[in-house]
Amino acid sequence: MTAPSSHVAELRDVKMQFDEKKVLDGVSLQVNPLDRLVIMGQSGSGKSTILRLILGILQPNAGSIFFKQFEITRLRRRKLQQVRRHIGMVYQYSALLSSRNVRDNVALPLEELTDNSRDEIDEIVDAKLDLVGMKDSKKLMPSELSGGMKKRVSLARSLVMEPELILFDEPVAGLDPVIASVIDELIISLTEKSQVTSVIVTHEMESAFRIGTRMAMIYQGKIIEDGPPEQFKQSNNPVVAQFLSGSTEGPILEGSQDAIATK
């Protein structure tokens, strides 16, 4: 089975559960070239799970996942590792290797996966760090960086292999509004400059509308709305409307533990 070549990534009727908890219940989603697809949803709704499924780090209980023509769910380890080289990932807490300085963190994929000489690697690392405004911090260790700086280094690391798809897991979570805007602008400019498709998982509404060229909302394991940001703003779906407004009145909290807590 192959995916239509027009999609960078595709999920077909994906079901996923952890122990007894059903997280994804038949999710189908296509990521088109140059999309900046923002996936929104409540905490624990399965947004980050989708990113890990695309990377092949998690295996779904049912359904298929494609990256271009490759069916991720059927790939063997070596092939999967080769495919992952074309996908970049920026983690919520940056996931920089704490024992390596900024330069070594960004250089890691190049050192491990390419035959580039040290000079060539340094050149690429300098270029990517320059893009994110971190060229002068090459020697710093991750523990010496602020949250925003870590995110920028993580972004540079995800770019060094010239990926075709970058996955962002809560890129602005825990950052102040100013730094969050800086990261948002950086994501927009870098994805446009590098002509790269991206999937961004977030529940920061301001950031979502700033970055996204397309949005999808996940609720109770299903995609309940998928379209351009304008469509979301005018959505008649009560779940989407409540999520965007942040209201405590509406279907989202009905019967949930959070609702009980508010009473």
Binding site: V83, R84, L97, S98, P109, E112
Partner: peptide
């Protein structure tokens, strides 16, 4: 263990690097 908890191991895996050999 700390690397696993802070998602460093997963990040290595996500880059296409075999975490076991690395």
């Amino acid at each position: 263990g700390t690397m696993k908890v802070s998602e460093e191991v997963e990040a290595i895996e996500a880059m296409g690097i075999g975490p076991l050999r690395f």
